[in-house]
């Protein structure tokens, strides 16, 4: 009985979280202008409408570009940051790690305003690269966390063992550390890309006229209610979910492999 209650509770929680998304999903395929039940006709008309509008396509392309740059840059920074923490012992190391974790804990609104002020002061605001910069700040901590976790699973002597066998520190990085961290690095690419694709508040502040897709959607919803939003929402949700699942898969598979003899 207790187990049944617990299970129902979990199901209800998930229903509560996912119902709005599900509704949006379902209505994105309905031909009706206004969401109403029962569904009369299924069609892809709203998807077609989105594809026909250049403003949407532009912002979508922009979102992809921003996500691409963000994932590459924040993964590089995140891995570097994690490696420094793994490899060296230095004064203020705890502060260093704490500072690396902070950005996602700041409310995005505040982060967005701060970014806008800072970027406009140094003349980098209101463009695509502004969003990239802001998103890198937001995403790097996630990448650092993933890479730190992976490095913490590495045999303390693995790096020294490679040196001991004649590999220079650079060769060791290339042939031992990076291959070992590859699953974490891939996962970091996917997760940071997903975060950047979905991120709205900071992008809204700093993107100026070069809107990303979430900003475009908000501007649309602010003016009118169009079922196109459902189509876009369903599409981006699927994309983000795919990225997150990919990241999890990479991590789980690599975990299984390394943990086989434990």
């Amino acid at each position: 009985m207790g187990l049944f209650l617990l299970r129902s509770y979990v199901v209800l929680i998930f229903l509560f979280i996912f119902a709005p998304i599900l509704v949006s999903f379902v209505f994105s395929f309905s031909e009706n202008r206004f969401p109403s039940l029962p569904l009369t006709e299924y069609s892809l008309v709203w998807y077609q409408r989105v594809l026909d509008e250049p403003a949407f396509l532009d912002s979508f392309k922009r979102s992809l570009t921003v996500a691409g740059w963000t994932s590459v840059l924040s993964t590089c920074l995140g891995f570097g940051g994690a490696y420094v923490d793994y490899r060296y012992r230095f004064l203020g190391q705890k502060v260093y790690v704490a500072l690396g974790i902070v950005p996602p804990m700041i409310p995005v609104l505040i982060l967005g305003v701060a970014m806008l002020i800072f970027l406009s002061r140094i003349g980098l605001s209101g463009a695509q690269h502004s969003v990239v910069i802001a998103h890198v700040v937001l995403c790097t901590p996630f990448s650092m966390a993933i890479n730190r976790l992976k490095l913490s699973q590495m045999d303390q002597n693995l790096e020294a063992a490679a040196w001991n066998l004649g590999a220079t520190p650079w060769a060791t990085m290339r042939t031992v550390i990076l291959p070992f961290c590859l699953p974490a690095i891939l996962a970091s690419f996917f997760i940071t890309a997903a975060i950047s694709l979905d991120e709205f508040a900071i992008a809204w502040f700093v993107s100026g006229l070069e809107e990303t897709l979430p900003v475009r959607v908000l501007n649309l919803v602010a003016r009118q209610s169009s079922p196109s939003v459902n189509a876009i929402g369903s599409f981006t949700f699927t994309m983000s979910l795919t990225l997150i699942i990919l990241a999890q898969l990479v991590l789980i598979v690599s975990q299984r492999r390394s943990g086989r003899n434990e």
Binding site: N157, L158, A161, W163, N164, L165, G166, A167
Partner: peptide, 15 residues
């Protein structure tokens, strides 16, 4: 990496 004195580790440290 220039010493040519290979070490057999307690943990084996295999890649």
């Amino acid at each position: 990496w220039k010493r040519q004195m290979p070490l057999v580790w307690q943990s084996y440290a295999l890649f």
